[in-house]
Nucleic acid binder design. Structure first.
Lengths: 147, 147
DNA sequence: CTCAGTGCAAACGATTTGCAAGCTA
DNA sequence: TAGCTTGCAAATCGTTTGCACTGAG
């Protein structure tokens, strides 16, 4: 499976003096074949299952590389682990996260998008590069956790 | 220094069969004397400086207790450490976080507040219990980190 | 007197890093 | 070949936990 973004990635690698290694390519394809946020561990496991060799260290190192060059986003959604997601050009979306169970729902809201920009601008933050998370309780996790 | 919320806290402790220990009281007062998000470590240090004895373990255990009973909020703002903040009744605010340096700015926006509620509702999330974070780059951290 | 709470140190989970060996350019 | 990359294992970092002791009720 190939992705249009792969060529851009290769170009960046060359331009920046990085080498094109099999591990790098495998990982790149792997992330681009998942269409939502995924943990480093799940990526590793998923690659292992498919027989794609890569070590945990290399995985983390290359994820950071892809983040650095803008191919991947790395964020935390309240939990302990980072979630990775390949960028979706021209398709911004934000995340609604359950503070209890960690469930993540994606949503798109032009209205909130506009407000985000405005708030960023008002505080001297860069208005083009932003993401937003709403943390709340999902329907399974009851309104108020008693006990 | 005493806080109106302290009495509520004491009441909850009694009602729930928890004991009123000096460590608990010290910590409670400590958090309520800080008016923004603060790391566990800073709390510990700050208490140590003031000669208020408490161990790291007890600190974490009691922070969780206060979270459980709704006196404290515990969240991650992108960094590795949790941030704690005593609740500000009737004074909701959200956070704008620099994805680079971690700087956190508080803001209030009734408009975004309304949208949050709406989005929560639309996805079956609890609309009253929510917080929101915008992640972007602050003025010091330049638009696009080259290299 | 009892059992919840404390402190210490050890355990943990995710991620990062040092170093020797491997492989791109 | 040169030196970026890899894999392994060890290290780190913040937070959590087991356990014996302490002290609130």
């Amino acid at each position: 499976m190939s992705f249009p973004e792969l060529d851009q990635f290769l170009e960046v690698l060359r331009k920046k003096g990085h080498r094109v290694t099999p591990e790098r390519l495998r990982l790149f394809r792997e992330i681009y074949s998942h269409h939502t946020h995924i943990h480093a561990d799940s990526l590793l496991e998923s690659m292992k299952e498919r027989g794609l060799k890569i070590s945990r260290a290399t995985l983390y190192r290359n994820l950071d590389l892809m983040v650095k060059y803008g191919f991947v986003e790395k964020r935390r959604m309240g939990g302990n682990r980072f979630l990775f997601e390949h960028v979706h050009p021209g398709m911004r979306h934000d995340h609604l996260v359950c503070s209890q169970c960690g469930k993540v729902v994606e949503f798109v809201s032009p209205a909130i998008e506009a407000l985000q920009k405005e708030i960023c601008r008002a505080h001297g933050f860069h208005p083009d590069q932003h993401t937003l998370q709403i943390h709340s309780l999902c329907s399974d996790c009851r309104p108020l956790p008693e006990s």
